[in-house]
Design a protein around this nucleic acid. Structure first.
Length: 106
DNA sequence: CGAATGACCAAGC
DNA sequence: GGCTTGGCCATTC
């Protein structure tokens, strides 16, 4: 069942500007639950359409997705369309967080 | 209802 | 300084 936490996740993810990315822990912290980064991932896993889930990545700037609804390749492709430079290394896709990380405070 | 799981993170070795 | 281990907490079995 989708709790308010989920709705907050979706609302916040929608605020991520085009061409920027955020981390799971960052989203969780912004929702006042810094220990619930995994739940953010779970929320995105069952996210409705029109949610820019591809802009949420892990702390290291790596795309660690591998499920049915979405693949790393798809995410990398979507991010490239937004103008983000995605690097393929060691079987995974990486992003320069220093350059593309979104800061909610701004 | 107890135990396992996961689109994560931080600390420890 | 790179790899392993535990802790998170809602969801699933």
């Amino acid at each position: 069942m989708a709790s308010d936490f989920y709705q907050n996740v979706y609302r916040l993810v929608k605020k991520i500007p085009r061409g920027r990315v955020a981390t799971y822990g960052q989203i969780a912290a912004a929702l006042d639950k810094p220990r619930s980064a995994r739940l953010v991932g779970w929320a995105l896993n069952v996210s409705p359409p029109q949610i820019p889930w591809q802009r949420v990545i892990n702390r290291e700037g790596m795309l660690s997705i591998e499920n049915r609804h979405a693949t790393k390749e798809l995410q990398a492709q979507l991010l490239r369309v937004e103008g983000i430079k995605v690097i393929f290394k060691e079987g995974n896709f990486w992003i320069d967080l220093k350059k593309y990380l979104w800061r909610p405070s701004l």
